[in-house]
Amino acid sequence: MKLIQKPWLWSWVAAAAAFALTVALTEGRGAGELAYAALSFGAFAAIVGLGQMLVITLGPGNVDLSIPATMTLSGTLALKAMGSDPGTAWMGLGVAILVGLGTGLANFALIYLLRLPPIIATLAASLLYQSLAIWSNRGLRIKPPAGLADFATGRTMGIPNVALVGLGLSLLIWVLLERSVWGRWLLASGQNLRAARLAGVPVEAVRAATYVAVTVFAAIAGYLLASFSGGAALNMGAEYLLMSIAVVVIGGTSIAGGMSNVPGVWGASLFMFLVVSMLNSYGAGAGVRMVLTGLIIIGIVIAASTRRVAR
């Protein structure tokens, strides 16, 4: 396959173009800072996007709408468990991952036992998680432990730590998808569930693992985001609902399922941040910025579809 045919290429081209246009305005000044900010903020979108990508790979109708609520719940509970005490960062991460496991299992129980469409199951469940977060948060703003906050906002060798965590998780997913049986099973289930089942793939186990994976990723993102922004807020996950779906699709993962694309999610996450900063630096107001973001998303989807037809 030639480079030009790689589905992830376009999101990276778009991200690079947005970067170049922004830097062109400032004549090269601030390029480093912009790249740094894009990596930091893009990392959160990429982590939740990776999870959403796995679910979307399962095929049409599979999407997880509980990501924002899971992020809020895990951030809230983890910070509450840590209570700003030093040396509790790993314990907090453990709490966050447990939250992710719990919400993922609950989501899948609704989907599997009650045969609910995933959209409705994760939507209804997310309302419960949201209430749980409100109830346990009570408007308190607990600061993360100093060490953890330093880690989340800090950098190693010039690269933001959150981006390194995101890259590590991406690598893990990439290896799982490309090199493990589980990844093959996931792709097979997404391409044709019935055929996969007849071929002996344990499709329900694959689906369960996928729905747990997405919430664990969301929980980790929530934990990091709460540490990054100095506390959990009840609306901290809100923007990641649409964002998680957008980065998956812009990244070149097929909405019809059965095809994943890890690098594309990163390109799209960087792009989503860069396009906003580009429009910002050209002086666009909030309204214009949103309209253009929406039109660009649709433009990319149309471009991707014509490419598909041409091939």
Binding site: V63, L242, I245, A246, V249, I255, G285, A286, G287, V288, R289, M290, V291, L292, T293, G294, L295, I296, I297, I298, V301
Partner: peptide, 18 residues
């Protein structure tokens, strides 16, 4: 699902503009 997702930004932006 994706096109309407994009449109949600467009409608939201126009609303904010008005």
């Amino acid at each position: 699902i994706v096109v309407t997702l994009g449109m949600s930004f467009v409608w939201g932006g126009l609303a904010l503009f008005i």
